[in-house]
Simulated assay, not measured.
Amino acid sequence: MSELTGQAIALPQMLMAKEQRRQRQIAWLADAPGATLVWLTLRIPGPIKTNARIEALFQQVIQQLQQQWDSKLIHQEMWRLSTGPEAAFLVTVEAKQLKQEMMLLEQKSGFYQLLDLDVIVPAADGVQSISRTTFELPPRPCLVCGGDAKSCSRSRRHGLATVQDVVASIIEKGELS
């Protein structure tokens, strides 16, 4: 049984982080008209969202994305938060094309399965994410059974301990292919 170690956080901290993320996204897009924003977070259930191992793997992904975008990268920043590491990238790539590229990364095995690579565009009420449904693709798969991850999460089909064990094992292996 694998176990995540690190600082535990509470729901109010997660809600505050989510609101701060939205405000940063609005500001980033307002400062760069015509650019596309990619916001990188992680899918880690439970109260422990980060530790040294997670941040090291996250940093490797950031370096890979920097190399991938090279001359198309306008600006990039990373935050080491108790609610989990986050990174933002402003790039000169069309949003739908970028979402397709990000979905391919999220579908890879290993640590990539934990990535949440949101492609963010301006919207009337601030910002919006381009959804997988835009491409008529099924929802992301559950890490435990391969079914619809949101459905499994909402129904708590596998229990938190089971999902945490799978996530901890993925992090422990640390595979980035």
Rank of each mutant, 00 (worst) to 15 (best):
V93T: 13
S153M: 13
K150L: 12
E136I: 05
G146R: 10
E94N: 05
E175G: 08
G147R: 03
E101F: 08
W69E: 00
K150S: 12
P85Y: 01
L137Y: 14
R80K: 14
E86F: 01
V91R: 00
L117F: 07
T134C: 14
I62M: 10
Q76F: 05
I130T: 11
I62T: 06
L176Y: 08
Q63E: 14
Q63M: 13
Q97R: 13
G147T: 10
S71Y: 07
P141K: 09
G146E: 04
P141Q: 12
S129Y: 00
Q164S: 06
C142H: 02
Q64L: 08
A161D: 15
V163R: 00
V127C: 04
F89C: 00
L114P: 03
V166N: 10
S129P: 09
E175Q: 13
E94P: 04
Q68C: 09
G159T: 00
H158M: 10
P139Y: 05
Q128H: 06
E101G: 09
I54W: 02
W79N: 02
P141R: 14
P122K: 05
Q66N: 06
V167T: 07
Q60E: 14
V121Q: 07
L73M: 07
S155E: 10
A161P: 05
G84I: 03
F111S: 02
I171L: 07
K96T: 15
E77D: 07
G126K: 13
A123Q: 13
L115Q: 08
F58K: 12
L176F: 06
G147D: 09
H75P: 00
V163I: 10
E136Y: 11
A149W: 07
Q64K: 09
C145S: 14
V121G: 01
Q68F: 10
L90T: 01
F111H: 00
A95Q: 03
V119L: 08
D165Q: 13
K173P: 00
Q76W: 03
H75C: 05
L105Y: 08
L105V: 10
Q64E: 15
S71T: 06
Q66H: 10
Q60L: 15
H158A: 11
F111V: 05
A87W: 02
S169A: 15
Q67M: 12
I170Y: 01
F111G: 00
R156K: 15
S71R: 14
P141N: 11
V167P: 01
F135Q: 15
R157H: 12
K173D: 06
S153P: 06
S155P: 03
V144W: 01
Q107I: 03
